Amino acid sequence: MLISNMDIGNEAYTEPATLAPAPIAELNEVSKSFGTVQAVSDMNLSIAQGEFLSFLGPSGCGKTTALRMLAGFETPTTGNVLIDGSDVSSLEPYKRPVNMVFQSYALFPHLTVGRNIGYGLKQRRPKIDQKKINEKVAHALATVRLSGFEDRRIWEMSGGQQQRVALARAIVNEPKLLLLDEPLAALDRKLRKEMQIELQDLQRDLGITFVLVTHDQEEALSLSDRICVMRAGRIVQTGTPQELYDQPNSRYVADFVGTSNFFGGVVDQISGSTGAITLQGGRTYKSPLSGTISVGNDACLSVRPEQIRLHFSQTQERLQGTVLNRIFLGEHTEYLIREERLGNITVLAPRQSDEGLSNLGTGDTVYMDWSPESALILPKD
Results as ranks from 00 to 15, higher is better:
T75F: 02
S89T: 13
L91T: 15
G85E: 11
K95G: 08
M69P: 01
G85W: 13
T77V: 12
S86A: 08
N80H: 14
P76A: 12
P93C: 09
E74G: 02
T75N: 04
K95W: 04
P97G: 11
A71K: 04
S89R: 10
G79H: 06
S86E: 13
M100C: 03
V88N: 07
E74A: 06
S90C: 14
K63T: 01
K63V: 01
L82D: 03
T75H: 15
D84C: 10
L82Y: 15
T64S: 11
L82M: 14
G72H: 07
V101R: 03
D87W: 08
M69R: 08
S86W: 03
L67Y: 03
T78K: 12
S86R: 13
F73C: 09
L67T: 06
L91N: 08
Y94F: 15
G79K: 13
T65H: 02
T77K: 06
G85C: 09
K95A: 04
T64H: 02
T77L: 11
T64V: 02
M100F: 11
A66K: 02
Y94Q: 11
A66Q: 06
R96H: 13
A66T: 09
L70T: 03
A66P: 00
E92Y: 12
N99I: 12
I83T: 06
G79T: 14
P93D: 10
E92D: 13
V81N: 04
P97D: 11
V98Y: 05
F102E: 01
T77C: 09
L91D: 02
T75R: 10
P93F: 03
T77D: 05
N80F: 14
E74S: 12
L91H: 02
N80W: 14
E92W: 14
G79D: 00
V88Y: 04
V81Q: 05
M100H: 06
L82K: 04
G85I: 10
P76I: 14
I83V: 14
T64P: 00
S90K: 15
V101D: 00
T75S: 05
M69Q: 06
L91F: 09
K95H: 12
A71W: 10
N99R: 06
D84G: 12
V101G: 05
Y94R: 13
F73W: 10
S86K: 15
T77N: 08
K63A: 00
N80S: 08
T75E: 07
L82N: 04
T65M: 05
P93N: 08
D87M: 14
D84N: 15
N99W: 09
V81T: 11
A71R: 05
M100S: 09
V81Y: 08
S90W: 11
S90H: 15
T64C: 00
N99C: 09
G85L: 14
L82A: 10
E74P: 00
L70D: 02
K95P: 01
R96C: 11
F102G: 02
N99T: 15
S90L: 13
T64D: 00
R96M: 12
K95I: 06
R96E: 10
L67F: 04
V98K: 07
I83D: 01
E74D: 01
